[in-house]
Design a protein around this nucleic acid. Structure first.
Lengths: 136, 136
DNA sequence: CTGCATCCCAAACGATACTG
DNA sequence: CAGTATCGTTTGGGATGCAG
């Protein structure tokens, strides 16, 4: 067991982390990437690199605080990289790291699913709300 | 434009919903499905139908309140269905609807990504925390 | 332009007790 | 077993003001 292939390592890692367990770090990570702003930022950066102000404009309604907080966390977790250009005024560009790129298609799928199935969900809600409550 | 195929409807729907816009309902839906408990519940039900108590056991650390709340929302949104059997004691089974099934592989991918990339994220955090803060 | 610090309120959440 | 109800705490997140 001293030598193992990358595939074997990955399989072992997959087994040793279990998001169903509250004590497992992956539960925490799942919570972090399961986030509205994370999805939108990642997908936006997937289209192309973005400046801070470009992200703020594209993610309508995001506050400075949430945007900065989200970007910092994503940077710390190694999903995006931040490049600051010292000029006047200062310019900051964000881009996806390879790790971020690996997550991108998944979160893009989540965002797309929401947009594509909105009608069905609205219909389901309408059914649920108009249906008679079950008698016990 | 009075008649259109289902495919055309879907294409139109896709264009008319944009999660980047704060006023768009899909932004709200994205927020709902971007949820730790939603992922875990959906994936658990993807394995097989589950009773309330089985879910409570599998999702370690979830409170009754959050579990019930999550299940109600998912039911209302048409992602899961709830079947109550009036016996003593009462028995309630949850299962995925076709709409839920369509979301399952996506959220399963999110959960798997978290478990598979935990090591890389931990390493990235370590780098970030030990690195010298950039001087300005 | 790109933040950080602070205040503050509302919503989220956990714990507990109770019910059909 | 499968919830509901209530309470108290924590957290999320917006608004504002300041700084490099």
């Amino acid at each position: 067991m001293t030598t193992q292939t990358a595939a074997q390592s990955r399989a072992a890692a997959k087994q040793s982390y279990d998001a169903y367990l509250s004590s497992c770090p992956s539960r925490n990570l799942l919570d972090r990437i399961s986030d509205k702003w994370v999805s939108l930022v990642l997908v936006a950066l997937g289209e192309s690199d973005r400046r801070y102000s470009e992200l703020a404009r594209q993610l309508a309604g995001v506050s400075q605080k949430m945007l900065t907080q989200t970007l910092r966390t994503l940077e710390r977790d190694g999903l995006i990289s931040r490049v600051m250009t010292l000029s006047v005024p200062v310019r900051v560009d964000y881009s996806l790291t390879p790790l971020g790129v690996s997550l991108l298609p998944i979160l893009a799928a989540v965002k797309d699913w929401a947009e594509e199935h909105m009608d069905q969900v609205i219909a389901a809600r309408d059914d649920y709300d108009t249906a008679d409550p079950p008698r016990s």
